[in-house]
Amino acid sequence: MENYTFNSFTLQLEGLKVKQASMYPVFFFFLFSYLFIMIANVGIVVLIFIDKSLHQPMYLLFCNLPVNDVIGNSILLPRLLSDILKPPSKLLIAYYECVVQAFTTHMFGTTSHTVLMIMAFDRYVAICNPLRYAAIMTNKMVMKLTVSAWGVAFVLVGILLGLTIRLNRCRTLITNPYCDNASLFKLSCESVFINNIYGLTFTVVLFTASIGSVVLTYTKITVVCLTSKNKSLNSKALKTCSTHLVMYMVMLFCGMLVIALHRFPQYSNERKMSAILFHIIPGSLNPIIYGVQSKEIQKFMLKMFRSRKVLSSK
């Protein structure tokens, strides 16, 4: 008969099943990924704020992505790095720390969608209504869009975790290398019907709104480009929109892979790794893709490099 421990404040993490020979390669992969994410994302945010030529709605809205990447990965990766080197029996986490980690993890995923939605709106206004762009995309509008992106995510995830926290717990094993909502409500012996319904509704609404808004805005942008004979407009639209779409597709693919692998228990280790890569891959690629595609960022980087070269030659 199974033993139950009710409402324990110490939980056991299942962790990654890493072979002894692979332990240090995996550790250093996560370590260098985390360092790169922190340096690249913090660097690009600082760059945008110190260069006045980058104080444009497109770049200010983009700043939400690196901030989200830094917060999401800072909660997950340092803890994961320490856990890789521990034996399974030592993988313990306090219940409230687990709740905070789950909240941050879901905030990361949800905010990734909402931020890319407001970025799609910005590109739509810039290309489909360029004459009114400055009047529509004011600093006030940028602030409203930013608050909306984070506020909607906060409310949706708050309800998600609130429904889970209300449950009594009779188990202590988190079947994941880190805490998320599903792992937390599976600790309960009570009915989780409401949790499953809200979780499914949450996912469907988020993905429908996200995919729908991106498809709608980019369909209209495509129509404008096809009917316009302005080669300069078409070139600019193609460049900025391709950047945004690449970021969106990477994030969507990583997220859907995690959801798909949940349906196949035999691939639990692959699911765990893909869930971690959902944080690492977008966080690593966002600053690279955006930095490479942006002429303004390239110019600033070249200017900084040349000024340092001149100073070092003196």
Rank of each mutant, 00 (worst) to 15 (best):
E2G: 05
Y4R: 10
N7C: 01
Q12G: 00
A21D: 13
S33C: 10
L35A: 09
I44C: 03
F49E: 11
I50R: 14
L54P: 05
Q56I: 14
Q56S: 10
Y59H: 12
Y59G: 00
P66F: 09
N68D: 09
L76C: 07
K90N: 06
L91T: 01
L92V: 07
F103Y: 15
F103K: 11
H106W: 00
M107G: 04
G109P: 00
H113P: 01
T114R: 05
V125Q: 05
V125M: 05
R132F: 03
K140V: 04
V142H: 00
M143L: 10
L145I: 03
L145V: 07
T146N: 06
A149Y: 10
L161C: 06
L187I: 03
C189Q: 11
S191G: 08
N195R: 04
T201W: 14
T208S: 15
S213C: 13
T219L: 10
T219R: 07
S242H: 05
M256V: 09
M256L: 14
R263A: 15
R271W: 13
L277G: 03
F278M: 07
H279L: 05
I280T: 10
P287S: 01
I288L: 15
K295P: 09
K295V: 08
M301S: 11
M301K: 10
K303L: 15
F305G: 00
S307Q: 12
K309C: 04
K309D: 12
S313Y: 10
